[in-house]
């Protein structure tokens, strides 16, 4: 029984991390309507930036975190401004944007690899050594912090989307870009803003991940795959759906490696992705419009 609770907890922690990635990703998808695969490398960038600020330069931790989140948002804005905007002007299809984002992912990952080298890095800010015992399962205080921050962040994001003008404008563009333009919302600005907000969330994800795991230059690929799969499970166009989907993915993976060798963890995610793409591409909570298009 205690093994089961331990697995459940591990799944919850993995799910929280995936959900942090999925939230930003699906926010960008919901307005921009293309798969921004390079979102994963923004998380890696944030983690390495924090490493550079805190562990190498020795700047105060809180200050480093704030800088990291701002810079991650800035990176998102730069990507949109200098890559995607040019392509959108040429009326590039979502497929071309997807390939470009894969190229971008590899490009930035290789740059990080070039500057920081392939060896794994650690940020020793909080030693998460002290475990807390819950029904015979161990969880570190750091992991509890991660789950709490994630939940608070999701609640804040939900409030942002429901109550603020910017959030409402994003939902309007997401729902119907042309009608939103008619009532005076500039879709171009909203695209840029969703990149800034989404990438800042990726920055927060990067900070939390860097405290929990070791850093390695290619971790972004893995993270975006999990975040993306979570979004597909929940329904790619809806941010809350993506978050729930990411938590579900975390649980499925952990329960999966109960039966299979742990090396197959990534393959499990992909088999789940495959199943959803084929049998229910709109996800659990997503809907299709009358023409079969996923909304």
């Amino acid at each position: 029984m205690s093994i089961f609770i331990q697995l459940l907890l591990n799944g919850l922690i993995a799910g929280a991390i995936y959900a942090l990635v999925a939230a930003g990703f699906s926010l960008i998808y919901s307005t921009n309507k293309f798969i921004h695969f390079a979102h994963g490398v923004v998380v890696t960038f944030a983690a390495y930036f924090l490493y550079l600020m805190f562990a190498v330069l020795g700047i105060n931790f809180c200050l480093s975190v704030i800088f990291t989140i701002i810079c991650a948002g800035l990176l998102g804005w730069i990507i949109n401004e200098f890559v995607y905007k040019t392509m959108r002007k040429r009326k590039a299809s979502s497929v071309i944007l997807l390939i470009a984002s894969v190229a971008l992912l590899i490009l930035l990952e290789s740059l990080i690899l070039l500057f920081f080298g392939p060896s794994v890095k650690t940020i020793n800010f909080l030693e998460g050594g002290i475990g807390v015992n819950i029904f015979g399962a161990m969880i570190t205080s750091l992991q509890i912090v991660i789950i709490f921050i994630a939940i608070i962040l999701f609640f804040g994001l939900w409030l942002f989307m429901k109550k603020t003008i910017l959030g409402k404008a994003m939902r309007a563009v997401s729902n119907n870009k042309d009608v939103a333009e008619i009532v005076g919302i500039s879709s171009k600005q909203i695209y840029a803003w969703s990149f800034i907000v989404g990438s800042s969330i990726a920055g927060i994800a990067g900070v939390l991940i860097s405290m929990e795991q070791n850093l390695d230059p290619v971790m972004g690929t893995n993270l975006i795959i999990k975040g993306f799969t979570g979004s597909i499970i929940g329904g790619i166009g809806s941010v809350p759906g993506a978050i729930i989907g990411a938590f579900l993915l975390g649980l499925v993976e952990v329960l999966g490696i109960w039966f299979l060798p742990s090396g197959y963890k990534d393959a499990i995610a992909f088999i789940v992705l495959f199943m959803f793409l084929i049998f229910r591409p709109q996800g659990i909570f997503g809907k299709k419009d009358f023409s079969g298009k996923i909304i």
């Binding site: 890559v83 040429r90 390939i99 470009a100 971008l104 590899i106 290789s110 740059l111 070039l114």
Partner: peptide, 17 residues
Amino acid sequence: PVRQIIYALMLLLILMY
């Protein structure tokens, strides 16, 4: 890494322009 950077950059530029 430089080899990957060259290829990725070229792919990106050709897709853009």
